[in-house]
Design a protein around this nucleic acid. Structure first.
Length: 657
RNA sequence: GCGCCCGUAGCUCAGUGGAUAGAGCGUUCGGCUCCGAACCGAAAGGUCGCAAGUUCAAUUCUUGCCGGGCGUACCA
């Protein structure tokens, strides 16, 4: 019986007993983890609540509930503590013997309803920076969390290939560099820096070009117009540039072990008439109307009464501009409807690329779909959009819009998985070579800006981390090959960066600081990896079949095991077991609260607890056979929980480090 | 103006209607003949922004105020 099942059973018993003995129907039975192992494994503060309703002493109530729980065989004992806590102690021996070789994950159920996670969605006009990586890492980790909970997940990375940002870099190629498509193709062949780095710089040049003269922005409008047409030389040039950038960004993300199933493109939302269809539906259901007077005259707007209007802003959200073009939010509503299987139209698809292990990424196309097998995309039960909190307002419009057209689907199907931005500390900005104004120097943080070229590029950072890790590995393991050192350095770099981005809760602004991000000590992914490597090394040193023998020894000698748990070190080693078994509920909680940081904290605490355990107990050299077996089984449980927990964060455990 | 978020140790951050509010970094001290020291232990460090309210119980919930951030685009 798993911890989750056990908890559920105990909660049910409490509910039943409250009904039988006190005639009280409890809607929800809350539990908590006592602050110390000595106080038990699970606490019910329920007596406080009942005391109020029954006007009785909480301790007396707790005593009554106590006997009901004690009859259950997975429960060792129950104590009433403090003012009326009901503290449950699990039957440690039974628990350990029954779960010694437990698997930590549910297997993904192919028949369960599909959910969709959209993340990354970087504008394909420049290299990805650390802020984009926060998005991708949160998204990818959330995908892993859902899968660990048995969900079937489709991963989409939206490509805004016809938007303002792509138009700007096209302006750079055409009007600043004076290049045509053939010349750009030639440039790509001979470039010394990656193409997305080249675009990064060009994009900032375009920013300066616009700042110099407002007139220059007319060029952007011209390009945008060409992009909307969906044909012609400029369109093909833009398509080439955007596609090369998508390739670069996918390559960057692959370094972090982040992959996608589908790349839906904005151009297809337009050219396959997704928007027209959504527009018709919205008009039919009266969700939007044509404004005839005032500031928004000539626009199709969606009323949005949770915002109040003032002199500067109308409360309504414009979906179609007075010149007839659609806003991003409008297109997003159509896209969201498709994701939920509500639109009644589908994309055409072609294969974009195949990863080294054979996994495929597909992309949408306006042309006919490729012949042969095409996976089914879209039509998800629930959609999680991983987008930073600055886009809460348009996301709210999308959610409300879709729910108004399809009330049967409702708002709950669209989840904006929002998180705060990554900004730079003033010191980090200066380290990147940016001159700060006196005003900026006083700020707590400085927002990154693609337009200004202010940001830490993802590839630069991972390069630096890998170089540092390589040096550390070399200092410790002179004997291994450079290939292996490179692999380990890569795993460490990914571990460091992914953990760094996941240890902050979503609504904390990450103020990027090089020293912190590059650290391998303390609360880091590297610390967790090191601990896992250490646990593995115990098992390398152990005799053959050492683990199997230990498991057998433990199950054959319950009385001796019980004696160990009752001894002076009992609480100490049991707390290790209890923590390792908390992985499952941690992952469930992370899914329910859409908060991956919970998992990061758990992994760190588990690693920390193991390091302490490791220092306090000599495992291999322990002479008492049963005690040795118990220690081995616990070390094995811990390493499997830690490895699984890290894997769910997208962090691998190196062979050595 | 309105909406959302934040204010907890020197710094960066967790956390909870309830048991002694925690971690990392930094500082000081101690620990490798011993399963890996990218480690472990100890010490110091707190009016949980301020005030009122709800409650048996508030750092947590409510309201107001102060300070900071982000939105509130015919950008995304």
């Amino acid at each position: 019986m798993s911890i989750l099942d056990l908890q559920q059973t105990l909660r049910e018993k409490v509910r039943q007993t409250a009904l039988e003995k006190f005639n009280v129907e409890l809607e929800q039975v809350t539990t908590e983890v006592p602050p110390k192992t000595e106080l038990g494994d699970l606490a019910f503060p329920i007596a406080f609540e009942l005391a109020k309703r029954l006007k009785q002493n909480p301790r007396n109530i707790a005593e009554t509930l106590k006997s009901a729980l004690e009859s259950f065989d997975f429960v060792g004992k129950v104590e009433v503590a403090g003012a009326g806590y009901l503290n449950v102690f699990y039957n440690r021996t039974k628990f350990l013997t029954e779960n010694a070789d437990k698997d930590f994950f549910k297997t993904s159920d192919e028949n369960s309803p599909k959910v969709c996670v959209e993340h990354t969605s970087v504008n394909p006009n420049k290299a990805a920076h650390i802020g984009h990586v926060r998005n991708s890492v949160i998204g990818d980790t959330f995908v892993r969390i859902l899968k660990a909970n048995g969900k079937r997940v489709e991963i989409q990375n939206y490509i805004d290939n016809t938007g303002v940002q792509v138009a700007d870099v096209v302006v750079g190629f055409v009007h600043l560099r004076k290049l045509n498509l053939a010349q750009i193709k030639e440039l790509v062949e001979n470039l010394e820096v990656p193409f997305d780095y080249y675009c990064w710089d060009l994009y900032t040049e375009v920013g300066k070009f616009y700042a110099k003269n407002e007139e220059n922005k007319k060029l952007r409008a011209e390009v945008l117009h060409e992009l909307e047409k969906g044909e012609g030389e400029i369109y093909e040039l833009a398509d080439f540039v955007a596609t090369r950038n998508v390739e670069c960004i996918l390559r960057t993300m692959e370094r972090f072990d982040i992959r996608y199933d589908l790349l839906p493109r904005e151009s297809e939302i337009l050219h396959l008439h997704f928007w027209q269809k959504a527009f018709e539906l919205m008009k039919e259901r009266g969700v939007i109307h044509l404004e005839t007077e005032g500031k928004n005259a000539g626009c199709w707007v969606m009323p949005f009464d949770s915002h109040t209007a003032n002199e500067e802003h109308e409360a309504d959200k414009i979906l179609v501009r007075s010149n007839g073009t659609v806003t991003y939010t409008g297109k997003d509503i159509a896209y969201q409807m498709w994701k939920l299987g509500l639109l009644g139209l589908d994309f055409n698809y072609k294969l974009f690329q195949t990863y080294a292990d054979g996994k495929q990424v597909w992309i949408t196309t306006a042309e006919k779909s490729e012949a042969g097998y095409i996976p089914e995309f879209g039509g998800s039960e629930t959609v999680y959009n991983v987008i930073d909190t600055r886009q809460s307002y348009p996301q709210e419009v999308v959610k409300k819009g879709v729910a108004t057209i399809f009330p049967e689907k409702g708002e709950a199907a669209s989840v904006h998985l929002n998180y705060e931005m990554v900004a730079l500390s003033p010191a980090a900005a200066e380290e990147l070579g940016f001159q700060l104004s006196d005003e900026d120097k006083k700020r707590l943080f400085i927002e990154m800006s693609g337009r200004k070229g202010l940001g830490v590029k993802a590839d630069d950072l991972i390069d630096r981390l890998e170089a540092n890790a390589f040096n550390e590995v070399e200092a410790r393991h002179k004997e291994i090959s450079d290939d292996e050192k490179n692999l380990i350095a890569h795993q460490i770099a990914v571990g460091a960066l992914r953990y760094f981005l996941l240890k902050f809760t979503k609504n904390t602004v990450v103020v990027f600081d090089f020293k912190e991000a590059l650290s391998f000590d303390g609360e880091t992914g590297v610390y967790c990896q090191y601990t896992a490597v250490r646990t593995n090394s115990i098992f390398r040193k152990l005799e053959e079949n050492g683990l199997a023998t230990a498991i057998k020894t433990v199950s054959d000698n319950p009385n001796d095991v019980a004696e160990i748990f009752d001894s002076g070190i009992g609480n100490d080693i049991w707390s290790m077991v209890a923590l390792a078994f908390r992985l499952e509920e941690t992952i469930l909680q992370a899914a329910l609260t859409t908060e991956p940081a919970i998992l990061a904290k758990y992994n760190f605490n588990l690693a920390k607890a193991f390091n302490l355990f490791y220092h306090n107990h000599k495992i291999i050299s322990e002479e008492n056979a049963v005690k040795r077996a118990v220690l081995i089984v616990i070390a094995d449980l811990t390493r499997r929980a830690l490895t699984a927990g890290l894997q769910t964060m997208g962090i691998e455990v190196p062979e050595r480090m």
